[in-house]
């Protein structure tokens, strides 16, 4: 402790404390933003309710989706004969799949498209907000902002966004709830053409109530008497009812925590002001002290050995 005098120690601690105070103040200011309260769907959030017990697999929604969204039907697998996507893909925003259990003979169709999560991982991860929740909670894509990093594909728990791997100007393709025709048609193409009402469009709260009413009136019909999407990953605006386990339909088993919740360590001010400032302050404090040791040593080495400093 001989070289590091008391005064010096006090100054070190003092500077550290003052930077910490600045950072702390910023952290306090940002505290409301940092609060980890789960996000709620907007009051006017819209979505869809898909009831697998009502779907007859006619694919009218698949054909209509392609038409309304001006996509080229994916005929690659069928050699040009049919629109026959193996899954959602850059030409397919909506697909009907078939689950068939060979042992029990149990079958179910499932319609897959964007779930329009209440707190979507894709939106949280998108570096320039190319994917963002727009009016009525619809998750839409903006080509001016997208850098094509495909983080949305990595982060989406439902594996919905698809990337145009073969295009020079590749887009991220996914269901946007037909937001471009919503004002005109009042609903997306798929719900408009569904002949059985297996998929219906509406406000999320009303759809949820409807789904629960269906469960109440037909006890034992639906898997676990549960609405998928009510709470999964913090809730989704597209809801599912099914008579077979949801994971059999490719809907993953998810906790109730929104996926981005695990990455929100404080708000912008904490992350980009308070934390770096405190860190910088601490580093600078140590650095300047050691810099003085370094300078003394440089002078000594030069005197002893005639060598210039090498930073």
């Amino acid at each position: 402790m001989s070289l590091l005098s008391r005064r010096r120690l006090l100054r070190t601690v003092g500077t550290g404390l003052s930077t910490a105070a600045v950072g702390g103040a910023a952290a306090v200011a940002a505290a409301p933003a940092a609060a980890a309260a789960p996000r709620e769907a907007p009051a006017d959030a819209v979505g869809m309710l898909y009831d697998a017990t009502k779907c007859i697999g006619c694919k009218a929604c698949v054909a209509e989706c392609t038409k309304v969204n001006d996509l080229a039907p994916d005929t690659e697998l069928s050699g040009g004969l049919w629109q026959m996507p193996a899954d959602l893909n850059p030409q397919t925003k909506n697909v009907i799949k078939l689950y068939a259990d060979e042992a029990t003979g149990r079958t179910s169709f499932v319609k897959r498209q964007c779930m329009h999560c209440v707190d979507p991982a894709c939106v949280s991860g998108c570096p320039f907000n190319a994917l963002a929740k727009g009016p009525q909670g619809i998750v839409g894509w903006d080509g001016e902002r997208c850098i094509g990093c495909r983080y949305c594909e990595v982060s989406c728990p439902f594996e919905i966004p698809k990337f145009e791997w073969k295009q020079f100007n590749p887009r991220i393709v996914k269901c946007e709830l037909c937001r471009h025709v919503l004002a005109r048609d009042g609903q997306p193409g798929c719900t408009r053409v569904c002949p059985t009402g297996a998929v219906v469009f509406g406000r999320r709260d009303l759809l949820l109530a409807d789904a629960k009413a269906r469960i109440a009136t037909s006890p034992g019909v639906y898997h676990q008497d549960r609405v998928y999407g009510e709470k999964e990953a913090g809730g989704t605006q597209v809801l599912y009812l099914s008579h077979v386990p949801f994971e059999k339909l490719g809907l993953p088993t998810l906790s109730e925590r929104a996926i981005p919740a695990g990455t929100r360590h404080g708000g912008v001010l904490v992350k980009f002001v308070a934390f770096p400032v405190v860190l910088y302050g601490v580093f600078l404090r140590f650095f300047r002290r050691n810099w003085k040791v370094h300078e003394a040593e440089v002078a000594r080495v030069k005197a002893e050995q005639g060598l210039e400093e090498q930073l």
Partner: peptide, 23 residues
């Protein structure tokens, strides 16, 4: 990245998604 030309968005702070780890 598939659309590298859009990196110019880095010049527009109001387009940053500061919540994004990738940003």
């Amino acid at each position: 990245v598939g659309r590298p030309w859009n990196f110019w968005n880095m010049l527009l702070p109001w387009r940053w998604n500061t919540e994004s780890a990738l940003w």
